[in-house]
């Protein structure tokens, strides 16, 4: 698989503060990556370094197996960092023409990309007259002008209203479905969970986890159960070797699995014991729960 970006032992210090600490990860073609982490965990700094706007203190990074210089590699990358930055006095078209000149690509895709983000009608309005949502969508159009090998988005929905957030997510999903590699930095977990296949989790500049979203947590999920025969159920579960922990909350019993077991199997064996369920759900921990447990574990 083609390597798009590799980061090795990257460290960035701002005076005494270490924003990024010995960070290493790889970005491979075709996957959708999320960089997760609370505010101030070094997400934007890391992206700033690989995008040539922040100087690294130590460590290495290379684009496309290190075959090109960083600024030439960036011509094959589409990136939006924090706020959309354009020339306020220029129209959408003029701004995008400028980007085409910088990226050395032809201008024929401008209209197509404006159409994709729904800004074609406002193409001749000055950038300063745009709402924040429109500015962010123009930034996405601009990042797509070169049909990039990888699209990097840093907090793309920050500060947007629900409608704006929805529009941006739809666009990201559309792009992801076309097979573009995406690197999405966010502190919004559901956002990452909805689109990403891989995650890198950062806290205070250190990597806590990197890998597939679904193998992030070694647990096998848990059952949520309800029954009128609660005592019998709890007793059965506690004696069962497949369960690690049983939690009771009013009528709801939550049983955490130690090993793989399907809902069907549990249901049948409970039925055979004469325990009848009114509610049975098998769930994996959400990314949010996994993330919180991961960041909490490490802080102790």
């Amino acid at each position: 698989m083609q390597n798009i970006l590799s980061v090795r032992n990257l460290t960035k210090k701002f005076g005494h503060l270490t924003a990024v600490k010995d960070l290493s990860f790889e970005i491979e073609k075709g996957n959708v990556y999320g960089i997760l982490g609370p505010n101030g965990s070094g997400k934007s700094t890391t992206l700033g370094i690989v995008l040539n706007v922040v100087n690294k203190t130590t460590g290495e990074f290379s684009w496309f197996d290190g075959n090109t210089s960083t600024h030439n590699a960036l011509k094959k990358v589409g990136a939006i960092i924090e706020r959309p930055n354009f020339y306020p006095y220029m129209t959408a078209i003029q701004n995008l023409k400028l980007v085409c000149k910088i990226k050395e690509v032809s201008e024929i895709k401008i209209e197509e990309k404006l159409e994709l983000v729904g800004l074609l009608e406002r193409k001749n309005s000055a950038f300063r007259t745009y709402s924040l949502g429109m500015k962010q969508r123009l930034a996405i159009a601009s990042a797509l002008l070169n049909d990039p090998e990888i699209l990097i988005l840093d907090e793309p929905t920050n500060g947007l209203d629900p409608q704006g957030i929805h529009q941006i997510r739809e666009i990201i999903k559309k792009i992801a479905s076309q097979g573009t590699t995406i690197l999405l930095a966010s502190h919004l977990l559901d956002e990452v969970e909805k689109v990403c296949s891989h995650v890198v989790i950062l806290r205070k500049g250190e990597k806590l986890y990197s890998g597939r979203v679904d193998s992030m947590n070694a647990t096998h999920g848990f059952f949520e159960l309800k029954t009128t025969q609660k005592e019998a159920l709890v007793a059965y579960l506690k004696n069962h070797t497949s369960f690690a922990e049983i939690k009771e909350d009013k009528s709801l019993v939550t049983a955490f699995l130690k090993e793989e077991m399907s809902a069907e199997v549990l249901n049948r064996s409970l039925f055979e014991k004469g325990i009848f369920l009114s509610h049975l759900v098998k769930r994996k921990e959400s990314l949010e729960e996994q993330f919180l447990s991961l960041t909490n574990n490490q802080s102790n």
Binding site: N52, V53, S69, H71, N85, V99, I102, E104
Partner: peptide, 17 residues
């Protein structure tokens, strides 16, 4: 002030350019 210098560099202009 427009932070466009940042965007220019991200878009692939080198600092010398």
């Amino acid at each position: 002030s427009n932070k466009t210098i940042k965007q220019n560099l991200i878009d692939g202009l080198s600092k010398w350019e």
